[in-house]
Every structure is written in C-alpha cells, then in structure tokens.
Design a protein around this nucleic acid. Structure first.
Lengths: 335, 335
DNA sequence: AAAATCTACGGAAACGTTTACGGAGCACTA
DNA sequence: TAGTGCTCCGTAAACGTTTCCGTAGATTTT
C-alpha cells in the first residue's frame, strides 16, 4: 500500500482527518484511546507526512538551499558540513546544488529554490556570473540570502569571507623574508573577488617591502589542477623565471607542483611555493605545502547561523551582516 | 511583493486561475491577447510556480534523492556529478544528503525523502548500518531504489558496484609479482561489503600464488586518514613488519604514507604501497601512488539511468538490476 | 432542575496548482 | 431559422495538510 495519507487513516478508523492530525501531533483535544489507535495504524501503514502539503499550509519549509560552484572541492565540502551541522541542529534541511561555475545553471538553481519555497539561501557565486539580477530578486521576495567566500558587492545580502587580502599579504611577505627576489603569482579568474583580493594583498606586501611588481610574473588560471599545470608550465619557462610562486589556491599549487616536477625544478631550493586553503593533502605532498589556512568549516557554521537568525526574525531587517575570518600562514617544506 | 501566486495574477487581470494556468503552459484554449497579458504580468511580478503545489496535484516531483556517507570524499563527489548530469538532462533535480556514516541519520534522511515524495532514491549505505528496514520499506512504497558502491544483499533494489574482488586481486597479484613476501592489508570497516570483497580478492591472489595469509598482516580502520595513520603506525612496528601493503582505499593509503614517513620507512624500497580509488592527488604524491582505478563518474551516470528508467516505467517490475564496473591497476612509483 | 463547564470530535477553509467538464458567444452551414 | 461547430473562458474537484470554530454530549456547578 503505497503512500498513505491522513485521509486514508481517517477513513479506516471512521473518524475525521482533523482528529487524525491532532492525534499525530499529540494535541490535547483528543481521547487517549483514539490517539493510540491512530498512532498504531500510522505506524503499521508506514505513514509519512507530506512535506509538500505541510509546506503549503504552513508557508514554511524548514529548508535552506545551498549552492556551491562545485562539490568535489574540499574547501566547499567543508563549508557544506559546517552549514549542515548547525542547520540540522535547528531542525532544518539543506538542499545542495552545484552551479559548476556556469551562470545559466546558477540562475536555474535559484529559480528552483524559489519554486521550492526554501526559507533561505546560501551561495558561493559562480566564477562566470557577472549579472546579479537573479540574486537581487531574493530581497524583493523576502528570502534571506547569505553569500560565502565568493561574494559580490553588487548583491544585497550577508557576506561571510576569509580575509583574502591578509592571506595574500602573508604569503608574499613570507616569500620576501625568505629572500626571494622574483616572486610570481598564479592568480584566479579575474572577475572573482577572491582573486582580486588575494592579488591585492600580494601587491601590498611587495609595495611595503619596496619590491617591484612585474606584469610578466602574473598569470591567470581557473581553479582546476590541469589548467594551473599548463599556466605554470609557461610561467616557469620565460627567460627569467620566478624563484617563488604564490598560488591563489592549493589546487592551483598542485598544478604548479606538477609543472615543477615536469621541468625538474627543485622545490623549495629553486622555487618556493605557497598555496591558499590548507587542504587535507597539503601536509602529505612532497614537499609538504606551505599554505594559507582558511577556516572553511567555521564559514559554513557562521553562514547557517546568520541565515537561521534572519529566517527566525524576518522583522529585524537590519543592514546586511559582514563577517571576515582571519587567515594564517602554515609553514611547511615548499617554502 | 513577495511570493506571487497564480491567484494573484488572476485577480489582477480579472480572469480565472484556470486561464492563467493555461496561459502559462502555452495551452491552446486561450486567446493570444490574454496569454500575452498573463505572461507579461507573471514576468513583471517574478512569478515562480510552487513546486510543492505542483507536486501535490501531479503526484510527481521530478526529484531524485541521493544519500552518500560523506561529501568531502572525492570518490563520492564524482559519483554525485555523474548522477546529477544525467538527471539534469532528463529534467530532474537531485537532493543530496550526507549520512556521515551514522545509521540514525540515514534513517532520518530516508524518512525525509519519503516525506518529500522524491520519485526515486540513490544511496551508498552508511558503514554503521546493519538494519535495513528503512530501505526495504521503499519497495512497499513503490519508490525505486538504487544502491551504489556500498550495497547490501539484505536490501531489495538495484546495485551498481565496482568489481572489488577483481581490484583486490589485481593489487595483491602485482605486489606478489614484484617479489614482495610479507604482504599486509589495511582493511576497511568489517561489515561493509566493499571491505569484505577487496579482502576476498586479496586473499584469492595469495592463495593462487601459494602464499600464506597471516592474520597479523590484517588490520582494520575507518576510511579516515587519521585513523589509518594510527593503524599503519602499529602495523609497521610489529616484530616482523610487512614489506608491502594493500590499502583498502586511497584515503587509507594516505594514512599509511604518513606513517611510513613518520617512521622513516622508504617507499617503495622498504615498503611497497598500493591504494584503491585513484584520487586526483594520487599522481601528485611523493612517491606517486600506485592504485586501483575505479569508475566513479560512470557509476553515478549508470545509477541515474537505471533510476530514471524505473521511474518512467513503474510497470516493468522486473528483477533488480546488477551492474559491476571493471577496475584496473594504475602503476606509479609507490610500488 | 437549570445553567455552566469540559471533553472529544467534526466541518470547512486555506495553502497553490492542474485539469476535466461545461457553457456562452459567435460564425458558419443547410 | 435552427442547428452545428469553434473559440475562449469559468467552475469545481482534487492533491495532503493544518487550524479555527462550532457543537453534541457528558459532567459539574449553582
């Protein structure tokens, strides 16, 4: 007997659906005997309430929608875990979607989340997104929005990020203090704020230490290992190759590492390398990767907390919140 | 104006909701003029149909529920990608949940998926699950179920797995042919079928090559790096330590690698190491990891295909399907 | 004995859709 | 002129819940 409803139970017991509903919710207004019969039958028939129907009448789904560029990226999956944990504890479900960094997908996902009537949305924006109508729409619809890591100033909503400027600064400063002279940066997609900020911190450190920033020491790549490998391959073969590289992320650093091996360049002797993220594999690489640590799990938790608070209290329409998490340098053997 | 409904549009245009619905669906029975007005107003008010309401009346959600033990595991995230891709192409959404290998969570998730009225469920069972009532319930409810990778014989449903026995055999055989004499296995959680099968293949190879299987060369661990590290640490310090290890997964191999480094054991000279999975970082490790390759993306695709087919044709209640994907050995420097 | 209170339940509206059915208005045919 | 056939639209039921309100009958209070 597939998919039993409250009506079926009412009919079988010769009572009204109202009574069944009350019995299932342990309300006062129902005789113990009746309640018992209802509960037993519900159990026996494997009754499961329809969240669709409940959502319709309650105008609440207790669900938050989450969209990340990609899931097979440890940074994002840790954020997901952080967010899920506090959401679950508050009795909320989390629906996870991947934009694959494709703008059109992101728009479609947002539409679906609105259609699903989620109570709030957490998003890390796709790298190809340059139009933000779909996100600003959420404000008009009174759907709380928090952006994490990949945020945009053009969107109205809460923002939780790492201190990318600080991270870029720390990385460059460390390389400078190690006595490196030709410091390069393998940067990320240009329109992403995290790329801009990490580069910004990088440049700031150079300036503070009276070092010149050279355009030929800046290359761009996606966050994929293979693309980074290709980019690094080129960078390491210019006439005067760098003796240090700050990679915009650990995945990019992995590509650089691969390129260095391919070209038989010794790390850290001939090339110092600093990444960004502190992936779980970072200490296991050879050489182990010096990198900027970012608090991914905490970002997820904080995103959830802010979202839940604004879901619970829609009345307090204060200004969007901004939270910046500190980064720190983890020194290992690659630099 | 938050959350506009079809009723609002009807009222504002002084027409019935039926007409609005037809207009939005491009049905024949509506005047072009009217349709135009409806579409324009819907656009202007950012109307998004409620998937809850639609699901209620259509008794279909076009959604498939997916539950994995954990998301921050490249193997599973690749399966997710494979499944999502074919699902999306068929116009289906995917809801992703993590059991965190906790039985109680798994049960709760299944209940929620039933409540959400998903059209089908794909699951990789939690390692702590030994009671399968919650999964067998799905058959009674006519909800198609496919299990991937971590399957159980006690559950009625389709099964998509890697040829774990073959994989275990290939790994052991290779180590034997390399002339290793004291071959150990760092195995996975005992009640998981993948653990059993990989061990089974491992033992079969030993038998075929007239080598004895020694109990002291078998240790168990979870699939977490840290636990594996501890287990390997012990294993490598017994009186007559192994000269080769077959790790039940690459994550476990990472732990072994860490332990070997800690104990200053040279790989592959003093210890040969073979993993299982072929993670993206495997070739980047030092030494690069010899491992068994498994077709994670294809498993995801196939799971989706089978699920979609049985959702589309509930009438063909044939026997559950079983699909086994071939594995192969990828030789690198760790063995 | 009448009035007031309690207990346990049912009726019905509402949430946002889809869709089967019927019907008004009009033009055309015989 | 009456009948036929379109075109376009509205009515209403249904999906599975929750919840407000009303009420019959039993029990207690005056």
């Amino acid at each position: 007997m597939p998919q039993v409803s409250i009506k079926d139970i009412a009919r079988m017991l010769n009572i009204s659906i109202a009574t069944v509903s009350r019995a299932l919710h342990d309300r006062y207004d129902v005789h113990p005997e009746t309640r018992k019969k209802v509960l037993e039958l519900a159990e026996k028939l494997n009754y499961r309430p329809s969240s669709q129907a409940i959502g319709l009448v309650k105008r609440r789904t207790n669900t938050i929608g989450m969209v990340v560029p990609e899931i097979d990226n440890q940074f994002f999956s840790e954020i997901i875990n952080g967010l899920e944990n506090v959401a679950y504890q508050a009795g909320f479900n989390v629906m996870i979607f991947q934009s694959q960094n494709i703008y059109e997908r992101e728009v479609k996902i947002i539409d679906q989340l609105i259609g699903a009537r989620v109570d709030g949305i957490a998003i890390s924006i796709a790298s190809s997104t340059v139009d933000f109508k779909h996100l600003n729409l959420l404000k008009e619809m009174d759907i709380p929005l928090v952006m994490f890591d990949r945020v945009s100033d053009e969107v109205y909503g809460h923002k939780i990020i790492n201190d990318n400027i600080e991270g870029g600064y720390l990385a460059a400063e460390y390389l400078i203090k190690q006595g490196r002279k030709r410091i390069a940066h393998v940067g990320g997609v240009e329109n992403l704020k995290i790329s801009q900020q990490r580069l910004h911190g990088f440049k700031a450190a150079l300036r503070d230490y009276q070092m010149e920033f050279k355009e030929e020491y800046l290359v761009r790549t996606t966050f994929k290992i293979e693309d980074s490998f290709q980019a690094a391959l080129k960078l390491l073969q210019i006439p005067e190759p760098p003796d240090a590289i700050f990679a915009v992320s650990d995945y990019v650093a992995l590509g650089v590492l691969k390129a260095a091996k391919e070209l038989n360049i010794k790390i850290p002797e001939e090339l110092a390398l600093v990444g960004f993220s502190n992936l779980a594999v970072a200490p296991l690489l050879e050489p182990s990767l010096t990198t900027i640590n970012q608090q991914s799990y905490a970002i997820g938790e904080e995103s959830a907390r802010i979202l839940l608070e604004h879901i619970a209290h829609p009345e307090l329409k204060t200004e969007p919140e901004n939270k910046i998490f500190k980064t720190n340098l983890v020194i290992r053997n690659s630099a």
